[in-house]
Design a protein around this nucleic acid. Structure first.
Lengths: 190, 190
DNA sequence: TTCAGATGGTACAAAGGTGCCTCATACGAT
DNA sequence: ATCGTATGAGGCACCTTTGTACCATCTGAA
């Protein structure tokens, strides 16, 4: 059966490879091309037919992950809502992507367009943090860079804890938002 | 000159190797033995004389890092102080070790003794979290696993931000403690 | 000076990964 | 049924890394 998405190149094999590679490289960035092929259920030759080499595949994966994240965030963000609610919805949208997103942390992407897109993503988070500060949800004296780093880490940690079974998936976004906002909220008594 | 520490095996070369390996593998876990030797300023042959193979070196590094962390924490912890202050001092002690500690996150250590020691370390953090809950500094309804994960991540994030120059070193421990405690503190109004 | 130990450089073989290739086959469209 | 395409299996040459061995050199101690 042909996926409704991806009408252009290939139906199943390519998707299987992409999925397996993301999954595998998230756990083990040094995994072999053979292992990727094995986990994708395709021959190693087929893998090379779809992606010339390791960098090629890596770049495609990164672009897909960033695109997925952008879409999830765009769907979650409602600019008419408060920044606090936008943050909450962003956590809900992005945390489930943690397993697909995580391998980008360590991967060294050479492709310029991809790194630019990633930087732009962080900038967007920085903008959201600015709005949170304007709302008073985040104290103005906390460095924006710290808040952005925390959001990044919270997404990863939340997914990680869910994946390992220590935290219920339903609680993850709430815990993350609570950790961030009540942790960085204005001090009550100085 | 012979270091006062390490009286038993070798004076300088071994220490240089260990230092270079930790530093290098923290940034690039896949770095080659040759690269390690290069950064340590020794020949690859010398490296092999001190450490039979990669696993051997990795295990030694892990043990050293865990031991260093244990010592730093033990020196910082004062059981007569409040758990909150103990946490603060732990952050102060451990964050500067972030660069030497970080490569353990991804490294796959086979050695049983080492993994046990690491588990014990996490357990100790869990105990501290229990005390924090007893003090009311951390809400009882927050899963301990989540708090432990946050502490772990805060150490790493804090060091990371300091290393990249986005956060001042002097602020890191305070920011971390503030993020954690005020983020997980008892709710004021339900 | 002499000697033992440590080191650097180099060479070597084994092992594994990579990229490319061919061939037989299975599947779908015509 | 036939043809074209994608695939799986396997082979092959090339490269890097790894672990080992050998030898000349240097340094500190006797």
């Amino acid at each position: 059966m042909r996926s409704a998405l991806n009408p252009s190149p290939r139906p199943t094999a390519r998707d299987a490879i992409i999925d397996a590679a993301i999954r595998l490289w998230s756990r083990n960035p040094g995994a072999t091309f053979s292992e990727v092929a094995l986990h994708a259920g395709v021959g190693r030759a087929t893998l090379h037919r779809h992606f010339r080499n390791r960098d090629d595949l890596l770049t495609v994966l990164a672009e897909i992950c960033i695109e997925e994240t952008n879409e999830a965030v765009a769907a979650a963000i409602d600019r008419s809502a408060s920044a606090t609610r936008q943050l909450q919805r962003m956590f809900e949208a992005v945390i489930p992507l943690g397993d697909r997103y995580s391998f980008l942390y360590r991967a060294e992407i050479g492709d310029e367009h991809t790194t630019d897109e990633y930087r732009r993503q962080l900038d967007r988070v920085g903008t959201l943090v600015g709005e949170l500060k304007a709302e008073g949800a985040v104290a103005a004296d906390v460095p924006t860079a710290w808040v952005v780093a925390q959001i990044d880490q919270l997404i990863w940690t939340a997914w990680n804890e869910v994946a390992s079974g220590r935290i219920a998936a339903a609680d993850a976004a709430n815990l993350a938002a609570r950790t961030l906002l009540q942790g960085l909220g204005k001090e009550e008594q100085p």
